[in-house]
Amino acid sequence: MTSNPTTSGPPSLLHEVAMRTPGNSHVEMCIQCGTCGGSCPSASAMDHTPRALFAMLRANMRDNVLSSNTPWMCVSCYFCTVRCPQDIHITDVMYTIKNISLETKAYQAKTASDFSKTFIRWVENYGRSFEVGLAGLHTLKHFAGRLLAMAPMAIGMITKKGMSITPPKRIQGMDQLKKILKRAKELEAA
């Protein structure tokens, strides 16, 4: 979290992103060199390169930034982060933008955000992730037409790797974890 990078006017999205990203993200230091986009393995799937996204962020183009699929296509490889000459924690900034785009319901990348939500639903209820259930539910929701064709692969996963088709055993401290997450969500919203 850094101090307000803007000098006047109402809090900008840039300021909000800077404040909500843990540590000092240096997000306001971008010099538009484009190293991030040139290093990105999933740039081809993005509607804007990270450099362009940061330009829009600094121009306070709120809707354009929050509806962009760019942060959702990030694979968290940290190439941009280690190469950035301004030491911007780009991957962490992408996480923060995703958080805000969900909160404001501005996000358009439904398949990606649903994947995250489905993944975490298991975690919030069992304390563990559930790979088979996750892939099954995600497929059902987004690619139902191919469900039948997927069946042989699912079977391969179960017979070869011995993966369980039933949800994982709940952790013993499930109540404790739920209390922690509830409090954390209140703190995030505060």
């Binding site: 996480y95 995703k98 958080n99 969900l102 995250s116 939500k117 975490i120 922690i180 997450l181 954390a184």
Partner: peptide, 10 residues
């Protein structure tokens, strides 16, 4: 991606 504070608390 969803919610930073609960993510770090987890």
């Amino acid at each position: 991606s969803l919610n930073l504070t609960p993510a770090y608390a987890l």
